[in-house]
Amino acid sequence: MKTLKSYIMVAFAAALLIACDDNNESIESEGTHVSAVLKLQHSLGLGDEFVLTDSNDEDKTLELSKFKYIVSDIVITNTDDEAIALDNNDAAQLIDLENADATNQVFAYLTGIPEGSYKSISFGIGVSQEVADGSTEDQIKLMELAESDMQWTWNPNSYIFSKIEASDINSVETVSNNLQIHVGNKGDFDGYRTVNLTFPETLTLSSSVSPSVHFTVAIEELFNPEAPGISVAYDAIGAHGDSSDISVNFADNYANIFEIHHIHPTEEAINLEDVEEENHSDDDSSEHSH
């Protein structure tokens, strides 16, 4: 009897295993059309030297070692003033200079935007408290992005919104005064900010093109913004003790470092799977060249 039961179980298990196999087949082979490409060109790359003012009003030469930020809640508005909110499980990005090309560009590929004419875009730097407190299902991609060293596991809002780090290259002679600012929603300070930008010309999205939007990201303007932004000494927050006014000013500056320089409205249509594959092979080749 026991043997018979085992046989039946084996047969059943085998049937189940075969059934499991079936599931993997039904994915469409067409690929996912890229609606638009965001090309974020940063003013600095990792390893670049730049000059910032410290809290003693002295200029210090720093070498950039880290700059990364989460982009979420992308909203694109068409010429009829309809706002299309892109799903964070598709559109959220971790922009990291570690992954930049030789001209400090990082690409973000947006998919699934309805065809049409668009006039503006907005996005958040970090993750809003509303999203962090909201649907867990809507945070699947954000959590995965955060696992690339953008997570305070021990904080109620576990997302780190942005990190900038640079070392004071003259620290051999003086006490080192490195730059290290990590922004999130911590204590009574919420560093989430929204960037709002208008396209210089109408952006037309259709299945026959994958237009690109070329952004400039002026990293130094986090500290020395154009008016009405308020300048921030690079060592005034973070590791050197916090003052919420300065933190607020610094976070505010994030909203103003982005500009849309131009768009390429008619670039050839591409598929997400193809660019992802290409990026992976790029990784491989760069590894070989080292």
Partner: peptide, 14 residues
């Protein structure tokens, strides 16, 4: 104090 501080790098002394 570690949780309610707005400074992620706050020292024990702070």
């Amino acid at each position: 104090a570690r949780i309610s501080s707005s400074n992620p790098f706050a020292t024990v002394e702070e």
